[in-house]
Design a binder for these strands. Structure first.
Lengths: 340, 340
DNA sequence: TTTTAAAATACAATCGATTGTATTATTGTT
DNA sequence: AACAATAATACAATCGATTGTATTTTAAAA
């Protein structure tokens, strides 16, 4: 009362009840009469009572909170995923703590450590570009906290659920599309090979070449962290030795857009001289001229499903379905950067 | 031990110490010898001990967490603000819970309620478009939780810190710029007048007209929620009666871009027929053609400063500086949509 | 009306860490 | 060596809610 923050004990005193009864009443337990439930809820309302979740969670050994780790919220793909996660979590009564690794392993480790201290009930992660081995993630799982990957996952971490798209297939679609519009010499921008998604996209690129009987030339594949600057650097590097390329498939939109800007600057015509395909469907891809052909991953769905899967797993710890991998559909969005 | 989650009591037992000593040791209290601190930390490490923040926070009556409420994380302005908030919070050892109101008052109220139950130490908010009176926010403050607004604030809620830009001045700069490049009849897209920022931007628009002795015509001001679709609707609506407008100042980029797309579609030349200025510097504004002139608000800074201010306020509750308003600089970025 | 079963409520321990107070151990002083 | 002064550690209560068990109250049955 002194603090302006009434507890169940204050309510109990006011009503001449025991705090345990008040607690049960507030939780609609059937061990309490309707009448007392009414009295208690009314009084609680009147006193402006709010359950102290810290106390409640401590006792219940459950935080009702899930942690989400993404490289960077300002990436549209991730913020959309988060929107989906939020939706599913909200509906199930969970809180969400959102954290950014900023592509740094050290930060990611710190975050994991912090989430553990906060006793989160589960974690959703799309790993940073620096994440190689999953030591910190194993530690998390070992302490009994369910973990689900979405998009950027680690192959070695088995026994964790994953929500992905078929990157290899999507990449093959993208590359195949370039070939079908007539490209003969297609470059590929890839990311750190520690991340499965980039390995898969490269694999898809290669399998499309194979399918259409085009040669695979390692010099046409440039690895980077796929920032806009990296896109510029990559295309520069390729043009030095292979000025006759006529298509680029980039493993993300941002790098593709960097390349596009550079190519426009040096007077190349897109798509006629060089056609371009990105990956992820960032909103600027639709707006840039020419609009960038890309792969849409339905991030909102990914988030929603990943979160539901996690919540399911939090429910039945014993479940053997914990290592389930869900593959979602992706779509090739054909836009002007490949319209010949 | 049984649970794989050692507590200070387990450590104490192992070392024949009292849990209070262990607690103090882990907190580097000077009431404990260096030697025991060493012994304890070593043992804690060995046993894989992690402090249970729920218990700790419950006892300390402090969650070390701040809540952040934004309309939508996927807006670049907000995700950048969050990045700034994150930075400041991380440095000060605070956790951040990020919540989206999705522009709905009801959700905003629910979030506030939830944050209170979670005993957050403070809240940063940029209110939804539906937020009119600040009943739920007052309730928060009344329960002693410091509240700071950034960007979208409520004028009526005095006694809360605010971190803003000078919207009126920025709007006047934007409108003045249109006039200086020769626009004579300038439309304005505004948002809900419940939000101070939109009132201020409208005010700035009017003051620029006055300064350059142009008439103010209420028919040229359209209010909406400033989505991309709203931008299209707004420009359509204006053109019906006032087909001779030669400039538009939109209170955000998204609506400006909607208008731009529509205008390009119907064959209007930008900036020659109609010049356009937006507000917020969303990334697509730079990429669209013609690139959109806009106001940059340095969102990262806003977030960082707002968070620092909040943390300061959490520190000295007694402070009289609680109603401080900080105004940050904004910049007009002149781009092709106003380059005649 | 008494007895008994069932319903409603009270008691008390607990979650894990923190902290004011009390006790024991150590050091230095004369 | 005895004593005070201080350092180091132990004891015990506490934060607020939950929950298993015990007790009381109520309702139903005999």
């Amino acid at each position: 009362m002194k603090n302006g923050k009434p507890t169940i004990h204050e309510i109990a005193r006011e009503l001449n009840l025991d705090s345990s009864t008040v607690s049960r009443a507030l939780n609609n337990s059937d061990r309490v009469t309707k009448k007392t439930i009414d009295r208690v809820t009314r009084k609680a309302e009147e006193m402006g009572y709010r359950r102290n979740l810290m106390a409640s969670n401590l006792r219940k050994k459950k935080s009702n909170t899930i942690g989400v780790i993404v490289p960077r919220i300002s990436r549209y793909f991730f913020s959309s995923t988060i929107a989906g996660i939020d939706e599913a979590a909200f509906a199930a009564g969970y809180n969400v703590i959102i954290c950014q690794s900023l592509e740094e392993l050290e930060r990611e480790q710190g975050i994991i450590s912090n989430l553990m201290a906060n006793q989160v009930d589960g974690v959703l992660i799309s790993v940073s570009m620096e994440t190689k081995n999953g030591r910190h993630l194993k530690q998390l799982r070992d302490s009994g906290i369910p973990l689900i990957f979405f998009d950027r996952h680690l192959k070695e971490l088995e026994g964790s659920g994953k929500v992905l798209i078929d990157d290899e297939d999507a990449a093959a679609k993208a590359t195949g599309h370039l070939i079908e519009i007539g490209c003969k010499k297609i470059a590929h921008f890839t990311g750190p090979s520690t991340l499965q998604i980039y390995k898969s996209r490269l694999k898809g690129y290669r399998s499309a070449l194979r399918k259409y009987q085009l040669p695979y030339d390692p010099d046409l594949v440039v690895s980077s962290r796929l920032s806009e600057k990296d896109g510029i650097m990559s295309v520069k590097k390729i043009l030095e030795k292979n000025s006759e390329i006529d298509g680029i498939f980039s493993a993300n939109d941002v790098a593709a857009i960097g390349a596009m800007k550079y190519l426009k600057n040096i007077g190349k015509k897109i798509p006629d001289d060089i056609a371009l395909v990105g990956f992820s469907n960032e909103p600027i891809s639709e707006v840039i001229e020419p609009a960038l052909t890309t792969i849409d991953q339905s991030p909102y769905e990914i988030g929603k499903i990943a979160c539901s899967l996690l919540i399911e797993q939090i429910g039945n710890k014993t479940s053997d379905a914990n290592s389930r991998t869900i593959i979602l559909e992706s779509t090739l969005l054909e836009r002007d950067s490949t319209k010949r």
